[in-house]
Amino acid sequence: MGRKLMQSTQSQQAKIEKLHDLNEDNTVRLKSSGDWTIDTLHDAAEMLTEMTSTYRNVPILWDVSATGRVDSAGMLLFIRSFDALKANQCSVDVVGATSEHEKIYQLVRRYAFGHREAKPALFSRLLMPFNRIGRRFVAFLTDLKDFLAFTGENFINLLLAIVHPRTIRFGAIVKNIEEAGVRAMPIVALTSFLIGVVIAYQGAVQLEKFGANIFIVDMIALSVTRELSPLITAIVVAGRTGSSYTAQLGVMKITEEIDAMRTMGFDPHRFLVLPRIFALIIALPLMIFFADIIGIGAGMFISHIHLNLSYPEFIHRLQKVLAVKHVWVGIGKGPFFAWLIATVGCFRGFQVSKNTESIGRYTTISVVNAIFLVIACDALFSVVFTELGI
């Protein structure tokens, strides 16, 4: 503004005037005057609203040299109107501003409005799905790299533990076996019992049509021992134990216990991760064997009720069709499933950031990742065993 108005005891009403319509150079000339403060803006705000809805694609020269005092409310009105005219494709030139009003303009523009993102063009919007896919793929590669580094660090600590067995925390392993194995037996037993019931009922309906009731034993014995008991038990453990590993380590990270351990010279991988992995590798095969017994027992019970197949007859047929190798195939999957579940659970726990919201997020990711990897690993085992004739 070219001159400063003397402050008076009474504020002058803010005004915005249109000097005249389009002239020879097609320019609309606006002139603001008065004090642009919160108490004087009513009439000017109405005029500016009407002008911003009227002018489009025209050059505008806005003279503010007659403007007196300006507070943040007046500057907000000016900026809002200025931006609205710009959005209407109008070229706006402001003349007559003083250094004081330039300072308040910069302050209000910076803190009240911030930097607005321009609306993406049509081509940019079409590329947005590919952009998201690319970002997720890069995030996946980063996660994979971090997971391989985490696995490598665990492997090094495992070798050190084998070389120096006294450093193995057997007490922590036993405690984790109790937490991951013994306390999980009720839910594993219930799940295995229901699986045996479902297989027996579904198989009995079909086999009874052909008078092949005795073959229900083959179906129950092979499907339970080779596939269903290992897979269902691993999924239950992934949801129960894998999530608890993530939550436990996540809370320790939030409370800075892990940082304190590093400060005191204790390796968190050796003290926190390895005992959990060892415990689950020991506990899961035992739980699979327990699930085999419960599942076959449930199938035998339903076969007796639904197909009138006696218990001695069921056991006699079971001894013929169930070779020991089938039991070992299912149990042998246990250590691999356990390693995947424990490693993923601990890895996600170490990724928890220092806020409580991330615990829930990474716990969910841990369970989903562990279940997916268990199913993928089981499919790989099925293909390999079939090709090898096992």
Score class of each variant (00 low, 15 high):
residue 232 I to V: 15
residue 344 V to E: 00
residue 283 A to L: 13
residue 87 A to K: 15
residue 248 Q to C: 03
residue 269 H to P: 00
residue 152 G to P: 13
residue 56 R to H: 14
residue 117 E to L: 14
residue 298 A to Q: 02
residue 259 D to Q: 14
residue 127 L to W: 15
residue 194 L to W: 03
residue 126 L to G: 12
residue 324 V to E: 05
residue 77 L to S: 05
residue 206 Q to P: 03
residue 331 I to E: 08
residue 205 V to C: 00
residue 314 F to N: 00
residue 362 Y to H: 13
residue 44 A to M: 03
residue 299 G to W: 03
residue 127 L to M: 14
residue 50 E to F: 10
residue 319 Q to N: 12
residue 26 N to F: 10
residue 102 E to H: 11
residue 181 G to W: 11
residue 116 R to N: 12
residue 102 E to Y: 08
residue 77 L to K: 05
residue 300 M to E: 09
residue 18 K to R: 15
residue 96 G to A: 12
residue 141 L to D: 07
residue 217 V to S: 02
residue 204 A to Q: 01
residue 184 A to K: 05
residue 356 T to S: 13
residue 163 V to H: 09
residue 189 A to I: 10
residue 359 I to N: 04
residue 168 I to Y: 08
residue 339 W to P: 00
residue 264 M to I: 06
residue 94 V to T: 15
residue 309 L to H: 00
residue 138 V to I: 15
residue 48 L to Q: 00
residue 380 L to P: 09
residue 35 D to H: 12
residue 154 N to V: 15
residue 192 S to F: 09
residue 161 A to P: 06
residue 40 T to E: 06
residue 71 D to W: 11
residue 175 K to N: 08
residue 316 H to N: 12
residue 275 P to M: 10
residue 259 D to N: 14
residue 354 K to R: 14
residue 91 S to T: 15
residue 344 V to R: 02
residue 341 I to C: 09
residue 10 Q to C: 04
residue 192 S to H: 11
residue 16 I to Q: 07
residue 306 H to T: 04
residue 115 H to M: 10
residue 20 H to M: 05
residue 85 L to N: 01
residue 17 E to S: 07
residue 190 L to G: 06
residue 305 I to F: 12
residue 366 S to I: 14
residue 2 G to Q: 13
residue 359 I to D: 05
residue 364 T to E: 07
